[in-house]
Design a binder for these strands. Structure first.
Length: 154
DNA sequence: GCCAACGTTGGC
DNA sequence: GCCAACGTTGGC
């Protein structure tokens, strides 16, 4: 069982959207490293921080769980989708996604707050220049955030 | 809107 | 294989 941090722009899929839909395919990843995490390392039952990016206060907004292993991301075949990839074919899909299930909302734990804790300093999401939309989280980091930072949260 | 950082593309 | 140009991400 592993832990992850998964970025989503709330304008596209927010934690409230995930709560309403219960389970969503993690479509739209177009970075090989992030894809490889989903394809090669993620397993059903893994837990993830649902992170809001590209918004006024970026940070962790909730928790979710991987419920389906990597499968082709159908948006790559849809010419109307912003994630369309003309170089990918159904015979040999380039992009995959896992499914994630809503677990719970938490209080928003801002990126700036995560940076305040030396216990979290090694998290990839905090590293300079990090842009990966999916990054691993260590068990100690997971426990620190869920047990120390979210305890009084909603 | 700016810009640092990084990934991808494509000419050579 | 190199690397310049370009595009994207995403915090601020």
């Amino acid at each position: 069982m592993r832990y992850w941090l998964m970025k989503s722009e709330p304008d596209e899929v927010s934690i409230d959207d995930l709560e309403a839909r219960r389970t969503v395919p993690w479509f739209g990843v177009r970075n090989y490293q992030a894809r490889n995490f989903m394809r090669d390392a993620m397993q059903v039952g893994d837990l993830a921080f649902f992170y809001h990016s590209g918004c006024p206060v970026p940070g962790i907004a909730g928790l979710c769980e991987v419920t389906a292993p990597a499968h082709p991301d159908l948006t790559q075949f849809d010419p109307a989708s912003p994630y369309f990839d003309a170089k990918s074919s159904p015979d040999d899909p380039r992009w995959v996604c896992v499914d994630v299930r809503f677990l719970r909302k938490t209080r928003l734990v801002p990126l700036a707050e995560l940076r305040e804790h030396v216990e979290l300093a090694a998290m990839p999401v905090l590293q300079r220049g990090n842009r990966l939309s999916i990054t691993p989280v260590g068990e100690a980091e997971w426990r620190f955030v869920t047990e120390r930072l979210m305890r009084s949260g909603s």
